[in-house]
């Protein structure tokens, strides 16, 4: 921006800032809602107007991780006194923690589903970004017969909404025994992200001067060594940006996870709403589950934020 700005430009700037603020608030409001509900006592979760000031509680998270049942009779004072602090929180809510015959606490389905989400999202991201990086390098550096057609074909896999193929995919998966397996979802998400990863990475690869590798080749390195020593470090920004996108897509995917999995390999997105169940839903527990579910993406994005800033400008920054 030029040092000298007219007053019109300045007021336009202010207007833009106000606009951005409003949009930001609109986007952040649901997240605030979820985060606050996750720490509310159950009776304050659904008040109208919403309660803003309250004593935060940890009980929704305890409930989220444990299997519970309704209390028929209130616990005896001895029972209450003998219980650990987190179990008392469940008693306070009129429920009890389900224990096995030997007295071991029964976990809810949530930790498992969360782990599934992590396994599926991380593995498919690594695969999609890894394969995408190699493919993009090939497209960027070598003359390939029908290069444009191949690239278009890769892109065309994104041209229809994925849900369109959900039923045939389900039948195929059932036939080969891939439904309700981690690998089933990993393959799906990798395939889905791959085209995106190839195209994005190709842009980044094209930005890296091929002179760097050629210098390494002349210096006595193989192309593979040159790729790992020179190209990959240069592509780190692109890889980070692509990984964030792929991770978010895989992490948030709902439709296929709902159709293809039900127990063993089920991820968190279809599981959380299934806990709404019948009767009176405990919104605080759902909010707690959603809140935890938001964290990995937020952390991942936060860790890579410097790369993302540069990556988003797509080579606008001169080397």
């Amino acid at each position: 921006m030029a040092a000298v700005t007219t007053s019109t430009e300045r007021s336009l700037n202010k207007l833009a800032i106000v606009g951005v603020l409003i949009v930001t608030i609109i986007f952040l409001a649901p997240i605030y809602w979820i985060a606050s509900t996750a720490f509310k006592p159950r009776n304050l979760a659904t008040t109208i107007p919403p309660t803003v000031v309250f004593q935060p509680e940890i009980s929704p998270f305890v409930k989220l991780f444990t299997k519970r049942s309704q209390l028929r009779t209130a616990p005896t004072p001895e029972q209450y006194a003998a219980a650990p602090w987190w179990e008392r929180l469940v008693f306070d809510g009129g429920e009890k923690v389900v224990r096995s015959g030997r007295g071991e606490v029964q976990w809810s389905g949530y930790p498992n589903r969360f782990m599934n989400s992590l396994i599926v999202a991380i593995t498919s991201t690594v695969l999609a970004v890894g394969m995408g990086t190699f493919t993009a390098y090939g497209f960027s550096r070598f003359r390939i017969k029908g290069e444009q057609d191949l690239l278009f074909f890769i892109l065309s896999t994104r041209m229809l909404p994925p849900v369109v193929v959900a039923i045939p995919m389900f039948l195929m998966y059932r036939a080969v025994g891939l439904n309700d397996t981690h690998w089933g979802l990993i393959i799906l998400y990798t395939a889905f992200n791959l085209s995106f990863s190839v195209w994005l990475m190709k842009g980044f690869m094209d930005e890296i001067p091929k002179e760097y590798e050629e210098a390494a080749l002349v210096d006595g390195y193989t192309r593979m060594e040159a790729f790992f020593k020179i190209v990959l470090p240069e592509a780190a920004t692109g890889i980070a940006a692509t990984a964030v996108f792929c991770f978010i897509t895989a992490w948030n995917e709902y439709a296929f996870a709902l159709i293809m999995t039900n127990r063993r390999a089920q991820t968190a997105p279809p599981f959380i709403p299934s806990q709404v169940g019948s009767g009176l839903p405990d919104w605080t527990v759902i909010a707690a589950g959603t809140f935890l579910f938001l964290l990995p993406v937020a952390i991942f994005t936060f860790l890579l934020r410097n790369h993302l800033l540069r990556g988003m400008s797509f080579g606008a920054i001169r080397k």
Binding site: E211, E214, L217
Partner: peptide
Amino acid sequence: AAERDVALVLQQYS
């Protein structure tokens, strides 16, 4: 390129 044992100096990016 590796076997030819030549050295290359470019205008930039080397």
